[in-house]
Every structure is written in structure tokens, then in C-alpha cells.
Amino acid sequence: MTLDFRAGGAALSLDLAHLIVAGWTGRDADAIAHHIEELAALGVPAPSATPLYYRVSAPLLTMATRIEVVGTASSGEVEPLLVISDGKRYLGLASDHTDRALETYSVAMSKQVCAKPCAAELWDWDEIADRIEEIELQSWIEEDGDWTLYQSGTLAAIRPLADLMTGSRAEALAQDGPVAMLCGTFGAKGGVRPAARFRMEMRDPATGRVIRHEYDTVTLPEVA
């Protein structure tokens, strides 16, 4: 499936060969411990190592503004999206939407069963590489008809994206074709919880440029 991105005002159509979800990528050991405890409260087992690189189906990455999930236990997470194509790197915005109920059984499987919404715009990596850690990410969820700030931070809180590229072997995988990787996130304010609507943005404070995306979640019935 072709994803029609925009990069520097130009169209960039990509057929992804690989999609990676990097987890447990926090740079601060205390922040990682907090996130592990946060998910442990939901029954999610601690990771075998940090970070971890989950391989998921490439077609899960979508620009759709509506996704479908089974049951009411899934939720989104704002993340930087690294894209590598034809030797060039780009930075974008995505949500690692995850089934939290399945996550208590298998984190890898929980990553595979949900679509990963992303914004259509990408920034040229070379244009922001010298200030990458200043890039700001935020997300909001709709609760009781109002938008509630759910996550907020800068890329300085996440392991260097260049290190994640090395650890995931993303550039080697890119020999097969375009690769995308979701690169981790921050803890949720008030705890991880589901919401029918999710809004996210990435901002470059040096230029004021902003990438935004918003999506709705449609709940399908759980049939036993």
C-alpha cells in the first residue's frame, strides 16, 4: 500500500518494506521505570531489555483519520516517526496505537493488531539534525467532550534517534525498500487510558513549523 507523504512541499510516495516500533526508549532511567510501572498497573510484563525493537506489518502505518479496534482497551501514544528511503532520512509524527488488554499477554502481538496512524508531512532530517532534541511532541485525548493534555515532552527525553537507527538496523533494512520506525514516547499524564479521539502534534521551536494529526477510534464488538 502506497503512503503519499509530503516532504519540503514535494510529494513523496512510499511503499514501505518494513515497519518497526521501538519501545522502552526513554533516556532517563527513572522515566523508563515510571513507564514500566505505569504499564505494570495494567498487567503488562516488564521488558527483557531496553530498548526493544518490535517488527510489525508495514501496512499498519496509515494516514487514516479513523481506525477500528476490537474492544475498548486500546489507546494511542504520540511518537516521532523516522523514515528512511533512497538513502535519505525524514522525521514525521505517528501514534503507536496499542491494544492494552492484549499487551498483558504479549507486547509484540499487541503492537501488531492495531493500526499506527501517522501525519502526511515529513521533515528533512538534515534540516533539523543539529537541533533534533529540541523538537516538541504533545498529544491530547477527548474526555467528556473536552480535549485533555495527555502527553508532552521533547525528543531529549528519548534516546538519540541515531542510536535507535543503529540498534534497529533500520538502515540495513532500508536496502529492501523504504523503512519507517516509531521511536518511543513519554508517560501519560493521569495514566494510560483509552479515548475515542486522539490528537497529536510535533513542533520545531526554532522555526515554528508544526505537524498535526488527529484520528477517531471505532470500537468493534468483542465476540467470544
Rank of each mutant, 00 (worst) to 15 (best):
A31N: 11
H34R: 14
H35I: 15
I36M: 05
E37H: 07
E37P: 01
L39W: 13
A40G: 08
A40L: 13
G43T: 12
P45T: 11
P51M: 05
L52G: 07
L52I: 15
R55M: 04
S57Q: 15
A58E: 07
A58K: 05
L60R: 02
L61P: 12
L61Y: 06
L61R: 04
T62F: 03
T62Y: 01
A64R: 08
A64D: 15
A64K: 03
T65H: 15
R66E: 15
E68G: 01
E68S: 14
V70M: 06
V70E: 12
A73P: 01
S74C: 11
S75Y: 08
S75F: 05
V78N: 04
V78P: 05
V78C: 07
E79Y: 14
P80E: 07
L81G: 11
V83Y: 09
V83C: 02
V83T: 10
I84W: 06
I84Q: 01
S85E: 12
Y90Q: 00
Y90H: 10
Y90S: 08
L93Q: 12
A94Q: 11
A94R: 04
S95P: 12
T98I: 12
T98N: 00
T98W: 03
L102F: 09
E103D: 14
T104E: 06
V107N: 01
A108T: 14
S110C: 11
V113F: 03
A115F: 06
A115T: 05
K116R: 13
K116M: 02
A119C: 10
A119L: 00
E121P: 07
E121A: 13
L122N: 04
W123P: 02
D124R: 07
D124E: 09
W125Q: 02
W125A: 00
W125T: 08
A129I: 14
A129C: 14
D130V: 12
I135T: 12
I135D: 10
Q138R: 14
W140E: 11
W140M: 07
E142P: 01
E142C: 13
E143W: 04
D144L: 06
W147D: 13
W147E: 10
L149P: 10
T154E: 07
P160S: 11
L161N: 05
D163F: 09
D163R: 09
L164H: 00
T166G: 00
G167P: 09
A170M: 08
E171D: 08
E171C: 01
E171R: 00
L173P: 02
A174L: 02
D176G: 06
